[in-house]
Amino acid sequence: MRALRAPKPLSPPPRLPAFFGYGRPVRTLLHAHRSAPALWGLAALALLAAALEALVRFGLVPKLVVAAPTETVVAIWRLAAEEGLLRALGATLLTAVAAVAAAAAAGLPAGYWLYKHPRFGLAYRNWLGALFAAPLVLVYPVVLVLFGRTYASTGFMGFVVGFVAIALYTREGFAAVSPTLVRVGRAFNLTPRQEFWKILLPAGAPMIFTGLRLGTIYALVNIIGVEYLINFGGLGFLVSETYDKFDTPGMYGAIVFVILVSGGMLWLLKRLQTWLRPA
C-alpha cells in the first residue's frame, strides 16, 4: 500500500476584479452578490420611470398632472440655473443648522439637568415622551401668528422638534449608563467634572448622538414642510411657487430634489454615526 501523500496544493485561482460579481455565474450574480439588490432596485426605478415617460408621451396621463421623468430632470437643471434651487437649498440648510444648533444648545443641558435632578426628570420625562410622539407640526399656525412669515417661524418649528428629541435622548442616554461604571468612578475619587467627562459622556454618547441625529432629521423635515405651508423660505417654498405657476415639471423637479435632500441627510447622518462609533 502506498503511503498517503498530501495532494499537491493547488495554485490559487487568478484573482479577478470583483466588479459586480464579475466572473460568477449569472444566477448567483442576481441573487447572492452584495450589490445585487441595489441593482434590482435601480432596475425597478428605471422601469417605473420608463413606464411613466411612455404614459405621459402617449398622452395617457395629462401633462399638467404628471411630468415626464426626462422633463423633470431637465427642470431640476433649469431650477438650479435660473430659479435659485441652490439658494433655496442653502436657505433651508442654514435654517436647519441654526435650528439644530439652538436645539442642541438648549436640549443637551436640559437632558443633563433632568438626569441630575431625578425628581424633575421623573416629572418631565413623560411630557417629553408625549411631545416626541405628538404631531408638533400642527401648532405651526400659532407659531405663524407669533412670528409671522419669517425665518423665525420656520426655524422655530425646526427648533421645537429638535429640542424635544435631543433633550429626551440625552436624559435617557445618561440614565442608561450602568450604575457600576458610576460607582467605579466614585471609587477612584473622580471629581464631578471628571465623572462627567470620563464616565457619563462616553457611556451615554451613542444614545445622545441618536437624539442629535433624530433631532436633525425631524428639524429639517419640519422646516421644509412649514416652508411649503407658509410659502416662505427655501425648498418648501420652491415647491409651492412652482405649483402656483402651473410649472408641473419644475414642481416635480423640486419635489424630487426634496426627496434627495431628505434621503441624503438620513444617509449622511447614519454614516456619520457608524464612522464615529464603529459597532
Binding site: N222, I224, G225, G236, I259
Partner: peptide, 15 residues
C-alpha cells in the same frame, strides 16, 4: 422606502 419615509409628505400635496 427610507428616503420617502423621511421626506415631509406635505410636499406631495401639489401632486
Amino acid at each position: 422606502v427610507a428616503a420617502l419615509a423621511t421626506t415631509p409628505k406635505i410636499v406631495f400635496l401639489p401632486i
